[in-house]
Design a protein around this nucleic acid. Structure first.
Length: 420
DNA sequence: TCTGGGGTCCTAGGACCC
DNA sequence: TCTGGGGTCCTAGGACCC
């Protein structure tokens, strides 16, 4: 059997690149994009990285650098990023029949059965994506997904490579692995990398040469897969067909601290409605609803409280009304007075396809709202996602998030088109 | 003052069964 | 006083990814 060949296409500083497409003046300036609620930095341009701004750091901790160096800061605009991602992924999908969309800014492609020169394919694809969307990407090519990640990393760092790095037929992979920090290996996170470094395993070459049994003990079966892949044996397959999800949750930090049950109920209603809408859009139904609330864990001065509760429904449903009623019941159960709440969330689990819902013996008309839900979904699709809400929500709820520097939805709303 | 959100998988340990 | 062996299922917690 022929060896596999995986290409990993990864967008460079994706959220920042999306913003730059619509504002080219930012092209050589330091730019960052923030997480929800303008909390942490989750995307950085090359210039911002060079200033020492780390991934995931809270904005307030780098405020001095941001001000002094005039770093441009964006609130995240997921509507825009999702649409730009769709465009990039469409180009990738049409370039090869074997594609896996791995995340909003990454895709794997399996190339071994295609009669092409891998590196020319990659350069061509990169050029097409840039030309059609304005998004720069880097491409790593290797015989396993884990090695393709390593190659991609190198393609990003080494400017002389023009954004493409292939390890196929490359005979000194060990040298590259030696220069790869163990924490940069796909599948080795913060905790494991600390543990491994304590045992003297600080780069990918050392990790690759560990014994199977030791790795099994340290990192469980996933670690075994990782080191096998580093040795060039593919054991994490391409997943062309996305698995149906097993859970769906909506959670948010609040823009300000909440103390009232009523305010939290408003937020939970919105979270429950959004989650219900999402599973309906995927033709799924939930059999269990969970709710959690918590205060701010970083605030050491105020009392900490965190609690959650779940309820299994008598039958799976995607009806917003049932899901919201259940969520509110659970909220009342876990809410306690005299705490300052920072975050809440709703989790729908036990998901099944809507066509597989079993009828119940004793309840009638349990699906009576389905026409109503379809009508609500159609209206919200046409006029914007929060056009129709539940009465227990509130348009300007106290929980609403901070989003101080958000760009327009240039590509998804006709009245928000870029003006030239 | 200010610290994201949405997922998946694995394991250990407890409860329970015969 | 002495107290088996072999299972399954569920859950909480820990790890990872982006």
């Amino acid at each position: 059997m022929r060896d596999k060949v995986f290409a990993l296409i990864d967008c460079n500083a994706f959220y920042v690149s999306c913003e730059r497409v619509f504002n080219p003046k930012l092209n050589s300036r330091p730019v960052v994009a923030l997480s929800n609620n303008d909390g942490c930095i989750i995307s950085r341009s090359k210039e911002a990285k060079a200033l020492g701004i780390k991934m995931g750091v809270p904005l307030f901790k780098v405020k001095d650098i941001v001000e002094k160096e005039k770093v441009v800061v964006f609130s995240s605009n997921y509507t825009l990023y999702a649409d730009m991602s769709r465009r990039v992924m469409n180009i990738i999908s049409s370039s090869s029949p074997y594609t896996e969309i791995y995340s909003i800014d990454e895709a794997f492609v399996e190339l071994s059965s295609l009669p092409i020169d891998y590196e020319s394919y990659a350069h061509q694809l990169r050029q097409t994506i840039l030309q059609h969307t304005g998004i720069p990407v880097s491409i790593g090519i290797a015989s396993t997904k884990t090695l393709a990640k390593v190659a991609n990393h190198k393609a990003k760092k080494d400017d002389s490579l023009n954004g493409v790095c292939s390890l196929v037929n490359y005979n000194n992979i060990d040298q590259i692995l030696e220069l790869t920090e163990v924490g940069d290996v796909w599948g080795v996170g913060r905790r494991l990398s600390k543990k491994l470094i304590n045992h003297g395993i600080h780069n990918a070459k050392l990790l690759k040469n560990c014994s199977d049994s030791w790795i099994r003990k340290m990192m469980s079966v996933n670690g075994l897969k990782t080191i096998t892949e580093l040795r060039g044996i593919s054991c994490i397959p391409l997943e062309e067909y996305s698995m149906t999800r097993k859970s769906c949750c909506t959670t948010r930090s609040f823009g300000k601290l909440l103390t009232n049950l009523e305010d939290i109920e408003q937020a939970v209603t919105t979270f429950a409605r959004r989650a219900a809408e999402r599973i309906r859009s995927e033709s799924l139904a939930a059999s269990c609803v969970s709710v959690f609330v918590r205060t701010n864990p970083f605030d050491k001065k105020s009392a900490y409280y965190s609690n959650g509760a779940s309820r299994t429904l008598s039958h799976p449903t995607h009806d917003s009304i049932t899901i919201i009623e259940t969520a509110l019941l659970l909220t009342k159960r876990i809410f306690k007075n005299n705490y300052q709440y920072k975050k809440a969330g709703v989790l729908l689990s036990g998901l099944c396809d809507e066509s597989e819902i079993q009828e119940t013996l004793f309840e009638k008309n349990y699906n009576q709202n389905s026409d109503l839900m379809s009508a609500i979904d159609a209206i919200n699709y046409r006029y914007g996602r929060d056009t129709l809400q539940m009465a227990s929500e509130c348009k300007v709820g106290n929980w609403k998030q901070k989003r101080e520097n958000c760009t327009r939805n240039y590509t998804t709303q006709i009245d928000r088109l870029l003006l030239v």
